[in-house]
Design a protein around this nucleic acid. Sequence first.
DNA 1: TTGAAAGCGATACCAT
DNA 2: ATGGTATCGCTTTCAA
Lengths: 333, 333
Amino acid sequence: MSRIRNIKELADLAGVSTGTVSRALAGSTLISQKTRERIQALAKEHGFRPNLLARNLRIQRTNTIGVLIPLGHETAQHLTDPFFITMLGLLADKLTERGYDLLLSRVIPTDSAWLDRIATSGRVDGLIVIGQSDQAATIDAVAKDYRPLVVWGGYDADQVHCSVGSDNRKGGDLAASHLIAQGCRKIAFFGDPKTREIEQRLQGVRDALARAGMGEPHIEPAHLTDDEFGPEIAGFLGQAADEPIGIVAASDVIALKTLRAMAVMGLSAPNDVRVMGYDGLTIGEHTVPQLSTICQDLVRGAEHLVDMLVRRIAGEDTQSVVMEPELVLRASA
Amino acid sequence: MSRIRNIKELADLAGVSTGTVSRALAGSTLISQKTRERIQALAKEHGFRPNLLARNLRIQRTNTIGVLIPLGHETAQHLTDPFFITMLGLLADKLTERGYDLLLSRVIPTDSAWLDRIATSGRVDGLIVIGQSDQAATIDAVAKDYRPLVVWGGYDADQVHCSVGSDNRKGGDLAASHLIAQGCRKIAFFGDPKTREIEQRLQGVRDALARAGMGEPHIEPAHLTDDEFGPEIAGFLGQAADEPIGIVAASDVIALKTLRAMAVMGLSAPNDVRVMGYDGLTIGEHTVPQLSTICQDLVRGAEHLVDMLVRRIAGEDTQSVVMEPELVLRASA
DNA sequence: TTGAAAGCGATACCAT
DNA sequence: ATGGTATCGCTTTCAA
């Protein structure tokens, strides 16, 4: 009793046609209950299950969503980044609830084809991109004629793709305003403005500074690799040690690295320097000191992404969502 | 210039056969350079890329690895669990390096078919299961005739599947021994021994207690849902408040919840109660107090998993790996 | 209720 | 160097 490899072998064994087997396994009531149960029993006995690849090819549908994390701006960044990982987990939960599997790709865009490649591969019913990175143009180009695509990230009035994210500019403003209200006279922004979200957060910081009649923020691109980070901070703190300093980090992860680098230098927040994060990850609740931050509602964000994607797959159109950021004051600023 | 949907349309357009197109697109030198470049240009111009589903079906290979997280023991547990997420990120990085995509499934086993279903689906070249949960038997059954399968989890001499994990019994012993050495006279274990790893850790705790001439540990199944957790701890602490207490948590996540529940009761580690975690996640470095824990080298574990899986796909056989756990003393115990 | 056969979109063998 | 064609394993229309 060798292993049954395909529907044809099972059909021969049962003395019926492949069509009958296919229908019986699908539970179609077109088939007499007797035949149906006999074939199902036979399949079970031989541990046979139809090949999904073939099925998907035939029905032109995979019940799989591609989740892409473009790392154009920061090749060294890994999937272990708590933000990605949190979002990924939330998406996985939501997608599973809806019966979708999840095809995960961490892509380092070398050409502009990375997105189209998977969109046209036939392997997914739709795509979720986490973060525009520096690939907004590529994403727009694909979104133009690939409908089932949603993106977590910053919103821009000109964009053609459908996005979900928080109002980054407002968030940046919130963060900087708080620092200024706390008496900081010198504001730094740690983050790489090449990606859209970060650029918008920086813009918000500028808004707040302008309103307060203060000049440009000091900008550190904040490479996420640890080794380059200490010197950057040290350099900045050294040249501005005479005024009360506030740092707006472009993400909680950057804020944590900042806190750690400061600790090495014998500095702590909020006494020596005030530090604001951005994201509202739970990890910030556990730090010493606990991280003050701008919270994005990732749970609701993930829900939106999945919900809108499903509707797009069904042919509906959907509008981008911009959520309210929230100032969360813990201890670091 | 409508969109080219398949190789046949491109072939017609180019006035050649599908075989030629297929070979040209694959860069085969069987095709004259002239034709090859002409067809590649044509494909590019029309944004055509071959359907991978069809390709995979034909060549019987997908370049995709399934990563499964069985949640048999704890349905409420989500992918957002820091341990899973950390492991998942590491695996994603390693698999990407090797050119594999990653098909993620969070499964709640309702029958014993969950694993076989994906193994026989034709959609993956191999499988990585993160944690045996309470499904060791099912995993063994599948591993019996499905070779490209590796599992993160506990090792048992009788198992047929290939696993990677730390020596959980030794780890549990390490944790409890440390608590005892610190003077704890009453030891509790927080975790659900239904899953193999946890059961082994508990066994290690028993070993240590036995050596010290102490009795059975107090066991709390430690449901991971927050609301049930406080009362469990309170109940335990209440009934044993007269002796120095030590808690071995079955994971860092459980330890963190314990710490938080204690804080609510006005208790703190290590003064009131000593708390040991298990896993060595980075999140434990950020807690107040920092978490003492048993560290498993997840980076090396992920490397082993991927490496062994690749070799199994290639037809080699591989042996289970048991890694040394390491006592990491921070502040909570 | 069931069977025959076309087709999903590719690859690869066998010719020429 | 290129074309014709069988094949991967399934679903579904059309006939009977």
